[in-house]
């Protein structure tokens, strides 16, 4: 009797734990990198990886020009395969937390890196993906 109930309990526990595998799309792997403009780190830029299937992955560079891509709220990374890369510094107008206006920021880098991007990156499923880009403002 005890044996049966404990068997039942442990079986349920095993079933419960089976549900705790990794979640999300397995075709999405983590990608990070650094963006420089004319050799200088580029802070506050938006990096977008567009695979042409499903949604793009986006990230924002920190003060050292380093970024990390996010696919959804719950999953980091970008889709395995060839991605078109767009890098933009243009930001829309906003507000601080206490309501002071933040003016829009204009584009600093040429259209060949964003609206008419020619940048590409092949995201690999086998090795760590470090996607560094050195842009030229001319």
């Amino acid at each position: 009797m005890y044996f049966q109930t404990s068997c039942l309990a442990s079986a349920s526990l095993v079933l419960l734990l089976l549900g705790c595998g990794p979640r999300g799309d397995k075709e999405i792997v983590e990608v990070e990198g650094t963006i420089t403009l004319d050799g200088q780190p580029l802070p506050g830029a938006t990096v977008l990886f567009v695979p042409g299937k499903s949604r793009p992955s986006g990230g924002r560079t920190d003060e050292n020009g380093h970024y990390e891509l996010h696919y959804t709220d719950r999953q980091k990374g970008a889709r395995i395969g060839l991605n078109r890369v767009q890098i933009t510094t243009a930001q829309g107008p906003s507000e601080t937390a206490d309501g002071q206006p933040i003016a829009a920021i204009a584009e600093r880098i040429p259209a060949q890196y964003n609206a008419a991007s020619t940048l590409q990156f092949n995201v690999s499923g086998d090795q760590a993906n470090v996607a560094d880009f050195d842009l030229s403002s001319h």
Binding site: R55, G58, R60, Y67, T72, G92
Partner: peptide
């Protein structure tokens, strides 16, 4: 801009 893409994750136009 893709659905549910927040400014924290790089969206330059979160209000649109």
């Amino acid at each position: 801009w893709a659905m549910n893409w927040t400014q924290k994750q790089g969206n330059p136009q979160p209000h649109r």
